[in-house]
Design a protein around this nucleic acid. Structure first.
Length: 585
DNA sequence: CTAGGGTTAG
């Protein structure tokens, strides 16, 4: 039935575009018009039918309409086909778009530069920029020239595929060989690509370079770099760049301000954040849902859920509806502070507000249950995802994996890991670290090391966390010697130990009685610019006390106090035990 | 609404 409706609407809009004024014309009036007018678009059955795309609601509608278009005589022009392809791209069904394109070619329908650019974009979004480049051949075959859109899309595709160097090369080639005239999208694509690849400072330099040329970066480009600087924790540089863009006469918009706001909030610079909001209001930039969600998130991350709720309240007072992201952020916030019942309540309240929990809402609540030791509830939710027809992502799986291992359910964890790959989801670094940690916690060190090799084979590079997990596992298993060797091998792998790792290894060395070596490492970590934290002092003192080295422990305790740290409860009770023993003697 | 672009959640 639905298909019929789609077709009928398409035909109706095709047929009667003419005579909108409704004037009555003499039956003979055509005699007075020229032949040119007879064939013009005012005729009832125009040679270029216009298609009504508003009837497309899902991908099936689009494909159905496409098949109808192929059969129409005269056939709709290429522009109409391009509109159709675009509608499928907007639904993120890139493979379907490519299939439709194939059918177009097989049926002999015309394609133009736009069509080919749409196809290249699909390949890029499917992470197959190589096929995108292959389409360049079609351009030449059809007698078309790739244009600035083509190159912008290919550059984006290279960045998406992590081919940063190649992307830069293509951009340079574009300039040197004058393949096309770069525009503001080109600049943004390159700068954004660099930022997202972690080369914020390169992007920053390039931006400053562009300022001096005729390629003027626009507000989007500035905003991208500002956002990246904020995420790289260099908020002050972001603020400077903000001042510079204003200097150049480019007005920051809501996006620019939101990025800065997020940067300030995330680093606890609340006062400045408040001032920024005042500036925004002065500039008549009204806060939108995204801005409010940033504030909700910032409060939640600080554990200030009450304040986060207040922000939501203010949002509603200002007639800005909290959305799925807002509530998902709250779920995450409540989960973080252990108020899992409140998290659940927020989750359950969503449908009543006309909002459907998305996969991230589920992941957040699953995470909340796992972190609060309620793995059964987490598992029930995990299964519900499938029933609701939502697609799992890597995070959902990694979260559930973490929960299962924490509950000691190793076999289930391994099964889930396999299940994830059966669902075509590719484990990332976080997944592997979760898996390794789970195995190590459950004393399956050998198994963990075998997965270390698998991850390397899969092209997932272990980071310092990966090795910290393994070293921790070895230490807990009493294999301090092997742990130390692995620790010493890290610099060769280009990895620098962090505080957490030093704490693990120093703590284990102390416990095993290698106090001298632990002390050496303590000195070494300070020399390498890695400042000891309160955990470092606690594990060291605890190790010394267990070895009955009371005097040395006391000396370290003094130093700890001088640095503004306090001993934890374990350290304190160990001290008391020791002093009691001393007193008894 | 014929093609390519920046910001929010785990």
């Amino acid at each position: 039935m639905k298909k019929m409706r789609v077709f009928a609407m398409a035909v109706i809009s095709r047929g009667f575009a003419a005579n909108k004024r409704g004037t009555v014309t003499s039956p003979l009036s055509f005699l007075s018009s020229s032949f040119h007018n007879l064939t013009h678009k005012n005729m009832p059955f125009s040679p270029n039918p216009r298609i009504d795309f508003s009837c497309i609601h899902d991908v099936d509608d689009a494909v159905f309409l496409f098949r109808q278009m192929l059969r129409m005589r005269p056939q709709p022009c290429v522009v109409e086909f391009n509109k159709l392809l675009t509608s499928i791209v907007k639904m993120k069904k890139y493979s379907v778009t490519l299939n439709v394109f194939d059918e177009m070619r097989q049926s002999g329908a015309l394609v133009d530069e736009c069509t080919l650019n749409i196809v290249i974009n699909c390949y890029c979004l499917l992470n197959r920029v190589d096929f995108g480049f292959a389409i360049l051949g079609s351009f030449f075959k059809c007698g078309y020239k790739p244009d600035v859109t083509t190159f912008n899309t290919l550059i984006k595709g290279l960045f998406l595929g992590d081919k940063v160097v190649e992307a830069e090369k293509l951009f340079k080639k574009l300039l040197m060989l004058k393949l096309c005239e770069p525009d503001e999208v080109t600049i943004l694509t390159v700068i954004n690509g660099l930022c997202k690849a972690g080369h914020t400072l390169t992007a920053y330099d390039l931006l400053r370079l562009f300022e001096k040329t005729s390629f003027k970066p626009d507000v989007k480009t500035y905003s991208t770099v500002i956002d990246s600087l904020c995420k790289d924790r260099i908020v002050d540089d972001a603020l400077q760049l903000l001042a510079k863009m204003i200097d150049k006469g480019i007005s920051p918009n809501i996006v620019t301000y939101s990025s800065i706001l997020q940067g300030l909030c995330n680093f606890g610079r609340w006062k400045e954040a408040k001032d920024l909001i005042t500036v925004m209001v002065d500039h008549k930039i009204s806060l939108d849902a995204v801005t409010f969600n940033i504030l909700v998130d910032a409060f939640c991350k600080e554990g200030l859920v009450k304040e986060a709720e207040d922000v939501v309240e203010i949002m509603m007072q200002r007639n800005i509806s909290p959305n799925v992201v807002t509530y998902t952020t709250l779920i995450d916030g409540y989960s973080l502070v252990g108020q899992i019942d409140k998290a659940r309540k927020v989750f359950d309240s969503m449908p009543g507000k006309g909002l459907k929990p998305c996969i991230i809402s589920y992941s957040s609540l699953i995470n909340g249950y796992c972190k609060n030791g309620k793995v059964e509830e987490a598992w029930a939710l995990f299964l519900e995802v499938r029933r609701k027809g939502l697609d799992y992502n890597v995070v959902t799986y990694s979260t559930m994996l973490h929960g299962l291992f924490c509950a000691g359910r190793c076999a289930d964890g391994l099964k889930l890991f396999k299940d994830m790959q059966d669902h075509q989801l590719i484990p990332n670094l976080v997944t592997y670290n979760t898996l390794l940690n789970g195995l190590c916690m459950n004393k399956q060190i050998v198994e963990a090391f075998s997965f270390l090799h698998i991850m390397e084979e899969q092209g997932v590079n272990p980071n310092i966390t990966t090795y910290s997990i393994l070293i921790h596992g070895l230490c807990k298993d009493g294999k301090v010697e092997i742990a130390r060797d692995l620790f010493n091998s890290l610099p060769c792998k280009g990895l620098r130990p962090n505080v957490q790792l030093y704490n693990i290894i120093i703590g284990s060395l102390c416990q095993e009685g290698h106090v001298e070596e632990a002390k050496c490492l303590f000195v070494e970590m300070e020399k390498s610019g890695c400042a000891p934290d309160s955990v470092t002092y606690n594990v060291c003192i605890q190790g010394l006390l267990k070895r009955k080295l009371l005097a040395e422990a006391k000396a370290l305790l003094d130093e700890m106090h001088k640095r503004g740290f306090s001993p934890d409860s374990t350290t304190v009770s160990l001290f008391l035990d020791q002093q009691q023993e001393e007193g008894l003697r």
